[in-house]
Write a protein that binds this DNA or RNA. Structure first.
Length: 419
DNA sequence: TCTGGGGTCCTAGGACCC
DNA sequence: TCTGGGGTCCTAGGACCC
């Protein structure tokens, strides 16, 4: 059996955990740029606030019901996630970190105790010790476990645990679920399935897996097997290395000129390069893209992108920034209202890779020395104390975060303030 | 006026190899 | 006149997840 442990309303629960005055109040969390809703407490859901609605549409509703809104604070959520996962590892030996607020766990070897009692106890303690309520679903496959988790959240909220361990329960769960609520089935596939008369998860579980593969893909075929109780998606206990590291952000206000966009791009590149070095990787390539506001019905639209290969796989920020900005120069056109710029480091590999280039002098050792010192200075004195000139200081493009909560768990002065 | 960010996997088709 | 068979690698695009 496989379990999925999922935090309830994770970001909203994190915010509430550190501010007791929010108890019982509706709480929502905004996307970057304070643009749309990405998390809601139960109270906010009851008031009819949906996922992903733009903030400007619900401003009045928020005022009317005293709904508390927060800019997303990923430093806080990331740190809470770490704490919760370390608690989970005290109860389960084999754990796969699946997302910031979800872990798959193996329930193998629990034959000699009462599975429900053990998991229920674990669920209560994880919730209590972390301050973030969790739900646990258990079944024979990951896809069925996700289904069980939905039931735990919707039907057995107080208990917070649901186990699909009989054929009757499996069929009942499938019949009560729409295909678009099945893990791995999104909007596009749902539309196609519905046209063929497949509406519930139960319908989907009855189709011929070979037909699913022929008419859709091997991905849907696996989902069908998993719904039937045949496990196709194994627990991944070892986190695979990252293949890409990316950063894109919407601008606080539209940008039209090259310089401020290049400045933003340089800053995002500095961030991804930091992440790269933290994981001891070098990047073989860089992709840069630009975008206008795709929600606008009147603005001219433009979404160019460019991929370039590094002369030598590298983690050296000045080089990466230089290449990124060169790429931007190629795709940038005057006359558009730009909404975002993004950068992705691709073709990642271990920094012991040692690939060299016949036509470029090897400056690697010198670069390593320099960037190590820069990292150290910035670690001790704050981010960007030493920076590339291209990163600038104007930051006209920076995103809106007007309702940011303190970094309760990671910044000393905030920890002291909340006592 | 105003709508997020960071990822993965799969597939088809083209280029290329022997 | 007439032109093979078996592969790999790379890229772009599409779909999905949280």
């Amino acid at each position: 059996m496989i379990g999925i442990i999922d935090c309830n309303n994770f970001y909203a629960s994190c915010e509430r955990n550190f501010d007791s005055s929010l108890k019982g109040l509706p709480v929502v969390v905004f996307s970057n740029n304070d643009g749309a809703i990405i998390a809601r407490s139960e109270e906010a859901k009851v008031l009819g606030i949906d996922m992903a609605v733009p903030i400007f549409e619900i401003k009045r509703l928020m005022k009317q019901h005293n709904i508390r809104g927060f800019s997303s604070n990923y430093t806080l959520y990331g740190d809470m996630s770490k704490r919760i996962k370390s608690i989970i590892r005290g109860f389960f030996k084999d754990v796969e970190d699946y997302s910031i607020d979800e872990s798959f766990v193996s329930c193998k070897g629990f034959i000699y105790r009462n599975l429900f009692n053990y998991v229920k106890d674990a669920r209560d303690k994880i919730s209590h010790w972390s301050g973030v309520p969790v739900s646990i679903g258990i079944a024979e496959t990951k896809t069925l476990a996700k289904l069980a988790n939905r039931i735990a959240k919707k039907k057995y909220r107080e208990i917070g645990v649901y186990i699909i361990d009989t054929e009757e329960k499996r069929v009942a769960a499938l019949k009560a679920t729409n295909v678009n609520d099945v893990w791995g089935v999104g909007g596009r596939i749902t539309a196609k399935l519905n046209k063929k008369g497949i509406v519930t998860a139960y319908d989907l579980s009855l189709i011929d897996p070979a037909w699913a593969k022929a008419n859709f893909s091997v991905v849907l075929q696996r989902t069908v097997y998993e719904l039937q109780g045949l496990s196709c998606i194994p627990l991944e206990l070892i986190q695979p290395d990252k293949q890409n590291i990316a950063s894109q952000k919407s601008f606080g206000i539209y940008q039209t000129e090259f310089e401020p966009i290049a400045e933003a791009l340089a800053n995002y590149t500095a961030r991804v390069a930091e992440k790269l070095r933290k994981q001891n990787f070098v990047a073989g390539g860089i992709r840069v893209w630009l975008g206008t506001n795709n929600f606008s019905k009147t603005d001219a639209q433009y979404f160019p992108e460019i991929t370039t290969v590094c002369d030598v796989p590298t983690d050296y920020t000045p080089y990466l920034i230089k290449r990124a900005v060169e790429g931007l120069k190629v795709i940038y056109r005057k006359g558009y209202l730009y909404k975002r710029v993004g950068v992705m480091l691709t073709d990642l590999r271990d920094n012991s890779d040692g690939t060299q280039n016949l036509f470029h002098a090897n400056a690697r050792n010198k670069e390593i020395e320099i960037i190590k010192k820069v990292d150290k200075i910035n670690r001790l004195n704050g981010r960007d104390t030493v920076r590339s000139a291209q990163q600038g200081f104007l930051r006209e493009w920076k995103m809106k975060q007007e309702h940011l909560s303190p970094k309760y768990t990671t910044r000393l002065q905030d920890i002291i303030t909340i006592k």
